[in-house]
Amino acid sequence: MAKLLGGIATSHIPAIGVAMDQGLENTPYWKEFFEAYPPVRDWLYTQEPDIAIVFYNDHGLEFFHDRKPTFAMGAAAQYENADEGWGIAEIPPVTGETELSWHIVNHLIEHDFDITVCQEMKVDHGLTVPLTLMWPGHKYGHVKVIPVAINCERHPMPKPSRSYAFGKAIGDAVRSFAGDQKVIVMGTGGLSHQLDGQRAGFINKPFDLYCMDKMVDEPELLTCYSNYELVEKAGAQGVELNMWLAMRGALEGEGKLKELHRSYHLPISNTGAGLQLLATDNAR
């Protein structure tokens, strides 16, 4: 059976990609942010996961309003990045994985999740920045990635409880897969931020810290929010918490989780940036 080793929650803002491309990791602005990552990288190096399921939101590279899925999932052997329009460097192709992907797709449809299934899909910074953060120098080609995109842009969006249930169904699917792969899940984005409107720049540090606290043992206290409440408490783009909740949902059913790392730093660009590593008993 495939095994879930744990989950990682991380920011995915494009400025991180730019900073890494330009070697700014040790400048005063970035140092504290990047210093949080080595322990998580070390854990990944030790655990050697075969597959990473990455929850992210597309920011208008692959999906436009003409046909915007609530939940979309990749089932391709490879994914390409492309020009996102505002000058972040394109990164090398991401390796995909079709067998577990289709197994998850089947499980999801059987359990009433109405996903859009993608056999070709451009992946944007929401997915590529976290990979580069975990494996700097774009050295992520050995890890097979299953991209899962959640609508965080245009209302109506899936509710936190639905995103959590979605993640849980994906975790159940992984556990029922007849392989011996080691799998990690990543929840990317957040935490509080607002890019648009006169309220732009809004960050809510106490709420972010509360969320990271509850992610460990009491995620149900977060899934009771509506997206409207998330916008109010965490800013218009604070709804990206849904990706963290999907990641946490995938670990539901793994018993008690060990929090191996937590850090929070703000501001990174316009956001409160959280990093969290939750391991299951399957991890070494």
Binding site: A15, E153, D196, Q198
Partner: peptide, 29 residues
């Protein structure tokens, strides 16, 4: 925004003008 713009796509316009999200934040506030 009042004309229905989504910040995801407006960000691409901002990029075309060479503006960062902090520049855009300043313009709005």
């Amino acid at each position: 925004l009042e004309a229905g713009g989504s910040i995801y796509y407006l960000a691409k316009f901002a990029g075309l003008l060479g503006l960062s999200v902090q520049d855009v934040g300043g313009l709005q506030t």
